[in-house]
């Protein structure tokens, strides 16, 4: 059977291998980290769970803010939420943004136009409504 000296030698070799492997792994990780920003566009490299966190917290904020809205203003609430949901124009702008012309760009243009109708229309109608609410003179 193997003598203790040989065993110790073998263990030292293995430890060295492990160290080199760890080193290589770290280098790879750095390389990956350096490459990923280049590979991502507007979508970025955000992990899904972060987006989910933002989403869930926003639902809670929405819940609490909306319950405080006075029932008399439920119509303006509806038209203002309609206007701000047109923030989808952000996606439309990215689609319509690239140079040249393509199907996606036309879709982007249509979406920009539709969302603009909503943004201008929604905020102006809300403003018209809110101007009418006045106190007893």
């Amino acid at each position: 059977m193997a003598d203790p000296a040989a065993l110790a030698e073998r263990a030292r070799e293995l430890a060295g291998d492990a160290g080199r492997l760890a080193h290589g792994l770290q280098a790879l990780a750095y390389q990956l980290a350096a490459q990923s920003p280049a590979a991502t566009g507007p979508a970025g490299g955000v992990p899904f769970v972060y987006e989910l966190t933002v989403f869930v917290l926003a639902v809670f904020v929405g819940y609490h803010v909306v319950w405080r809205v006075t029932p008399a203003l439920h119509s303006p609430l509806m038209s203002v939420t309609n206007a701000i949901s047109s923030v989808i124009i952000v996606g439309a702008l990215i689609a319509a943004g690239p140079a040249g012309i393509s199907f996606a760009k036309v879709m982007g243009f249509v979406a920009v136009a539709l969302a603009s109708v909503n943004i201008f229309g929604g905020f102006i109608v809300t403003q018209r409504m809110l101007q009418m609410f006045q106190r007893k003179k």
Binding site: P98, A104, M107
Partner: peptide, 14 residues
């Protein structure tokens, strides 16, 4: 429209 654009030209959206 935005979803259709993203589906056909995903590179623009990364």
């Amino acid at each position: 429209c935005v979803a259709a654009a993203a589906f056909t030209a995903p590179q623009d959206f990364g």
